Simulated assay, not measured.
Amino acid sequence: MDENPYCLYPCEPNWVYTICNLVGISGIVLTDRLLGKTHGAQIRQRFESSLEREFSDPNGSIVPIRSELTGFTIPGLAGVLNDAVNSILCASFLPHIAHRNWAFTKKENIRYVDGKLQIVNLKGADKLDPGNYKAGEGCLRAIVAAAAAEFGDEVMTKDLLEQLDDEYHPIIKTPTGSLKNKGLSTIEQGTALRARLGGYQDWCKMIQKGPPERTMRGPILEEAPFPDILVAKAYSQDGVSLDLVLYNGKAGGTFALGFTKLHEGKTYALGNERATADAQGRASFKVDVDGRTAVKLTLVR
Score class of each variant (00 low, 15 high):
residue 77 L to Q: 12
residue 55 F to H: 04
residue 143 I to P: 00
residue 93 F to W: 14
residue 125 A to F: 10
residue 113 V to Q: 09
residue 144 V to Q: 05
residue 117 L to N: 06
residue 95 P to E: 11
residue 57 D to P: 02
residue 88 I to M: 07
residue 155 V to M: 08
residue 151 F to M: 00
residue 116 K to G: 05
residue 103 A to L: 09
residue 78 A to N: 04
residue 141 R to F: 00
residue 72 F to S: 04
residue 111 R to D: 05
residue 141 R to D: 02
residue 130 P to D: 03
residue 91 A to R: 09
residue 57 D to V: 09
residue 153 D to N: 10
residue 95 P to Y: 10
residue 140 L to F: 00
residue 143 I to G: 01
residue 126 D to K: 07
residue 52 E to I: 15
residue 116 K to W: 06
residue 106 K to D: 09
residue 150 E to K: 04
residue 116 K to L: 11
residue 68 E to S: 14
residue 112 Y to V: 15
residue 135 A to F: 06
residue 78 A to V: 09
residue 118 Q to H: 15
residue 61 S to A: 10
residue 85 V to L: 13
residue 74 I to H: 02
residue 105 T to M: 06
residue 119 I to N: 01
residue 122 L to E: 01
residue 145 A to Q: 05
residue 154 E to Q: 14
residue 78 A to K: 08
residue 132 N to G: 00
residue 73 T to P: 08
residue 90 C to E: 03
residue 150 E to P: 01
residue 63 V to W: 09
residue 162 E to V: 14
residue 154 E to M: 11
residue 86 N to R: 01
residue 69 L to V: 15
residue 165 D to S: 08
residue 63 V to I: 15
residue 100 R to E: 12
residue 104 F to R: 03
residue 146 A to Q: 02
residue 139 C to D: 00
residue 67 S to V: 13
residue 164 L to Q: 03
residue 62 I to R: 02
residue 128 L to N: 06
residue 54 E to K: 13
residue 154 E to G: 03
residue 93 F to C: 09
residue 78 A to M: 12
residue 102 W to Q: 01
residue 60 G to Y: 08
residue 79 G to V: 10
residue 78 A to I: 09
residue 61 S to F: 06
residue 111 R to Y: 04
residue 84 A to C: 10
residue 117 L to K: 07
residue 58 P to C: 08
residue 135 A to T: 11
residue 65 I to S: 06
residue 100 R to D: 12
residue 98 A to W: 11
residue 97 I to N: 01
residue 157 T to F: 00
residue 107 K to V: 07
residue 90 C to W: 01
residue 137 E to Q: 11
residue 149 A to T: 07
residue 148 A to Y: 03
residue 68 E to D: 11
residue 163 Q to I: 05
residue 103 A to H: 13
residue 114 D to A: 10
residue 51 L to T: 08
residue 153 D to M: 04
